[in-house]
Simulated assay, not measured.
Amino acid sequence: MSTKDCPPTRDIIVWAKVPDVPAGAQELGNYNAATCESTFKWLEQTSPKEAGDCLEAAWASDNPGYNVDAEPAARLKKVQVAIGPSC
């Protein structure tokens, strides 16, 4: 499958908090270019789900001005996916 068959590209911000580490964030695309798998789906399948873990993902466009380099990272607005028992 080529990238021309994938959905339009939108940026996603992923916020994560694990025990004893400041919350962090990063910006990702909304799908895997090789497989066209949704980043939201991939996060649901691969994120840690232990006590104290929380991962949230939201559209970057719903979080204008968000600073992914801030430590600790701020929580997201309009979260699309929340994974982990501490969310």
Rank of each mutant, 00 (worst) to 15 (best):
M1D: 02
S2A: 14
S2P: 15
T3Y: 00
T3H: 02
D5H: 11
D5R: 02
C6P: 01
C6G: 06
P8M: 05
T9D: 09
T9E: 00
R10E: 11
D11P: 08
D11Q: 15
I12C: 04
I13L: 13
I13S: 13
V14E: 10
W15Y: 10
A16M: 15
P19Q: 05
D20I: 00
V21W: 14
P22Q: 13
A23N: 12
A25N: 07
A25E: 05
Q26I: 00
Q26G: 12
Q26C: 08
Q26P: 08
E27S: 13
G29H: 00
G29D: 10
G29Q: 14
N30Q: 07
N30T: 03
Y31A: 04
N32I: 07
A33D: 08
A33N: 11
A33S: 01
C36G: 04
E37T: 11
S38D: 08
F40D: 10
W42T: 08
E44N: 12
Q45V: 12
T46Y: 14
S47F: 01
E50A: 11
A51P: 03
G52F: 08
C54S: 04
A57C: 09
A58D: 04
W59E: 01
A60W: 14
D62S: 13
D62E: 14
N63R: 00
P64I: 02
P64E: 10
Y66L: 05
V68F: 11
D69C: 09
D69Y: 12
D69F: 07
D69E: 13
A70S: 07
E71C: 02
E71D: 02
E71M: 10
P72W: 01
A74G: 09
R75A: 08
K78N: 14
Q80L: 02
Q80V: 13
V81Y: 07
A82W: 02
I83H: 07
I83W: 03
G84P: 04
P85S: 01
P85C: 08
S86Y: 04
S86F: 06
C87A: 01
